[in-house]
Write a protein that binds this DNA or RNA. Structure first.
Lengths: 205, 205
DNA sequence: GCCATAAGATGATGTTAATCATCCTATGGA
DNA sequence: TCCATAGGATGATTAACATCATCTTATGGC
């Protein structure tokens, strides 16, 4: 090969990174071929030297987006005292900075409904990403048994995703922060509460 | 006018209703002019006899979608014993039927991230719809003071929206139901819990 | 039965985007 | 220095789609 071997790899990764941010910022078809290539300082023509199809780029972009958010949350969890990890995750996910910057946020909060509608061929990858997300988060979730942790994962992430989405509908940053605060307080209180109840007996629900 | 006066109105409403379902099922640009007109048994040409622009159709479709879901939830709330209304809302919103049928579901659960990205000119309408949604739901929310009800609205709807979205990512109906169940149990237990705690004193959070 | 008119149909135009064939050029090895 | 080649550029093709000008036709009043 004529160019240095790392050249193509670097270009490829830059395209994917740009596309991953575009997709999170503007939705699944915010990453038009020519746009993404221009982001990378190239023209649209070379695209198919890097990807067999636009769907292939989309697939790699999604993987990259999930990789990033999981890394951020795992880091937050690991830097916190054990038993508090899930609280660190909640505070990180629901932080105003996360909400204000969808480009580097969670793909689920930006794309979930669109991902639910993707082509059948891409569905397995989406499911795999979600399962991996859950598996990476479960060790940090509150609860004793694995089942409890899984239930906590679904409850906590449902709330966080919904809260970010509602917040992002609102133009006033102060109101956005109020929504995030509601969700955060709700989660922190509820699990504290359910833990203390669990240690005293069932809730009767 | 030559046609019966109700003729145009009926056609107009049929177009809006079809578009409202398409938009919820397929996203904001699932309602292409020609598609929606074909749904209504017409051709694309007559469209601009009914709407000044495609955005105008979109605006009316969203209003229709919000109107429908609010009606469904209010009916559920009013048919339940007082004090239990919010539980009826949660059970209705998180029912498998709701989840399986986005065409007649909540626009927020299908469109929230896309709505967050709409043109500045449409933003005020979106905010107005959300505020109206909240105002219609607040009387049924748990909590004593208005502030508590508002906080409950944000927490409960965040969780429900997120849960529906996560569930819809998953291809297996049984798993979808598990996710919905998690969110439902979590909400029902948490608010029961926070109510009993509130009646015994603050949580210290 | 006939006419004026508004709902709806036909077809044109301009735009955006995906895909791909073909051309250009920078580069490492000879 | 020169060449073979892979990365990248140009430009064509095709398909959706929004928009609108113009034509058709059904209809209620005369």
């Amino acid at each position: 090969m004529r160019y240095r071997p790392e050249h193509k790899l670097a270009t490829h990764q830059k395209i994917v990174k740009d596309a991953s941010e575009r997709v999170r910022a503007e939705g699944l078809n915010g990453a038009a071929v020519s746009t993404v290539m221009r982001d990378a300082g190239l023209t649209h023509g070379g695209f198919y030297k890097h990807f067999a199809s636009k769907d292939e780029l989309l697939a790699e972009s999604l993987k990259e987006g999930f990789r990033e958010i999981v890394a951020v949350l795992v880091r937050a969890a690991e830097q916190s005292p054990s038993g508090e990890a899930w609280k660190a995750i909640v505070k990180t996910y629901l932080s105003p900075e996360m909400c204000e910057d969808p480009r580097h946020g969670c793909p689920l909060a930006t794309l979930a409904p669109e991902l639910a509608r993707v082509d059948e061929r891409m569905k397995p990858q989406i499911v795999a990403e979600l399962v991996n997300y859950k598996n990476r988060m479960m060790p940090f979730m509150p609860g004793r048994r694995s089942v409890d942790k899984e239930r906590a994962f679904f409850a906590i992430f449902s709330t966080m995703i919904g809260a970010i989405e509602i917040a992002r509908l609102l133009p006033d940053p102060a109101v956005r922060r109020k929504v995030l605060g509601c969700a955060r307080d709700f989660l922190l209180r509820s699990f504290q509460c359910s833990q203390s109840l669990a240690s005293h007996g069932p809730t009767g629900s």
